[in-house]
Write a protein that binds this DNA or RNA. Sequence first.
DNA 1: TCACTCTGATTAATCGTTTAATCAAAGTGA
DNA 2: TCACTTTGATTAAACGATTAATCAGAGTGA
Lengths: 347, 347
Amino acid sequence: MPASRPGPNLSRIATSLGVSVATVSNALSGKGRVSGQLVERIREHAAELGYVPSQAGRALRTGRSGVLGLVLPDIANPLFPKIAQAIEFAASAAGYGVLIADSRGDVAAQTEAINRLVERGVDGMVVIPRRATRISSAACPVAVIDTPSTPGNTVAADHWQGGHEIAGHLAGLGHRHILIIGNNQESNVQNDRAGGIRSGMRPGMHSETLWIDRLEQENGSGCPLGLAEKVRQGFTAFAALSDLQALRALTELQQAGINIPTDVSVTGFDDLIWSPVVTPSLTTVRMDMDRIAGIAVSALVDTIRTSSIREGVLVTAEIERVAMQLIVRQSSGPANPAPKTSEMENM
Amino acid sequence: MPASRPGPNLSRIATSLGVSVATVSNALSGKGRVSGQLVERIREHAAELGYVPSQAGRALRTGRSGVLGLVLPDIANPLFPKIAQAIEFAASAAGYGVLIADSRGDVAAQTEAINRLVERGVDGMVVIPRRATRISSAACPVAVIDTPSTPGNTVAADHWQGGHEIAGHLAGLGHRHILIIGNNQESNVQNDRAGGIRSGMRPGMHSETLWIDRLEQENGSGCPLGLAEKVRQGFTAFAALSDLQALRALTELQQAGINIPTDVSVTGFDDLIWSPVVTPSLTTVRMDMDRIAGIAVSALVDTIRTSSIREGVLVTAEIERVAMQLIVRQSSGPANPAPKTSEMENM
DNA sequence: TCACTCTGATTAATCGTTTAATCAAAGTGA
DNA sequence: TCACTTTGATTAAACGATTAATCAGAGTGA
């Protein structure tokens, strides 16, 4: 006994109006040849009955599920809420649902998550890849959101340019010695951000990069970063490659009695939820996730519509990099003209 | 021209083995009467061909989509990654996919998001309601994760008990004047947490509650909370109702030159991603999201399996509250015996 | 009047799976 | 041997939507 859905279906509407199901289908989809008058009557009656097309029936017939997959291999990423929200919004506007798949960390699990989505019959998927993993083409179109320098990337924030903005901002405030604080050297995103910062530095400026995960491998997770020492060495600006690391730097410096922004400046990336409300509020650079998601989803949907067969394609979009926007808040200020010591003056 | 899926289907397996599709279906599902020998042969051949059942076909026939909806009316919630991860994991283990729906904030959008999910044919859904909204029963079973005191709640962390733990911890450290910092007085969760803290205080202790959104309505979003003044008034412990507010308090106090934990203590709720890495690391209380999600999903799935009709039921679970766990870190310490002033000594 | 096109509808097949109903053959007990 | 159950398989009918193919009738031009 097939469980009958509660709502009306095409044939109920059809018999109720004395026409055939095909006509009803055509009228509602606007595809076949139906007189305007009848279209009107059918539409009205369908609305009256609260007709909702069965996704299952449609999917079975058309081979399209109307669902996109969203793969977030690093779901603990604090950017996740924004990403998921933006993707869901864009997909929903295009008439698609969003099925999520998380692969807790490792790469094998990422592949497995992708397979789960394919088995559920998604028409395409958006993947935010973990670090430098390659997407072995799945059995459906795939849009990748990573960073423009990654091969196969569909669309992403211009992390490099974001770094450039940060560097320009700090240079303009008179900072000469910048400590870049990143988490993971394998990350394409973080590398681009760091590269952008370095490329934006003016002559006479100097930078050094601190990778946290390397430090933690030696000293244990959550270890101090030794930033007070860096201040003594003459660094006046700490440019973190994510707001999470910026926050870590900010609190460590504050705890050491170093005032921000009068003694040193701290900047981040991403404009995460806490950035506006910490004291001092965080100068950072924001990506236009709505725009990125919009581009990714519409490129994906276009590909789905045109590629008649269900094949594994890497989707490309016309715009593949979206500018990041500098948000100046209180954590950055003029470089302190009298650094506590000046070990670097001769560099 | 119906787009034929790439993979093999039941009938391909059937003809290839010279049996009927029904037999193949029975063999794979273990339902009908098929000889053990044939079952073995069919299973082998199916695996060999890489057979993946069509969700669409199955959904159409059974009326079940094998998909659960996840409604997060407040998707910007920093807890979201953990929740989504846990729900997806539990659902996936039970053979279900997870379709997300976000309703950016307002309540009408929440209803709309729920409808979207129903239209997509979800078999049931998990709702983390926004504040005090009631779930007008949808056309499918609904599990609610909020707080045990909310009517209709399926399962949730025992926020009250979590507050109790915090209060006990602070009392043990000798704190007598506690400032509770919450965001929104309408939130059932925050109210329970605050109630738990108050109920856990020992005789002679005193608390006051600061609601941030009320303060921000007057002074603008992101305004200072005036915590230095509170320290002067004699408060030695700041118990935030979420790590986000704890972080806000922590940085504001640090910026004012108040040392944590030697001068005052700060505690939070939720153990969010930054809590272990800020300086000082945050004492907080953690909810067992995996357990909660597991209970919610299995209760939901049970209800789906038993309720033959697609009806709107509020799911109940045997265990409806899951204990929270106190995580003691560096942001809490013994009460400073010599508060800067002592306006409260006569309270 | 005939051949032809155009319009507005219907018929019927199909997507892939599940499952109730049926059936043939074999086994069982009297 | 006959009636009856059990076993192991098949048949066929759904589920709900889409769409190619068909068809009746009206209009049209020669």
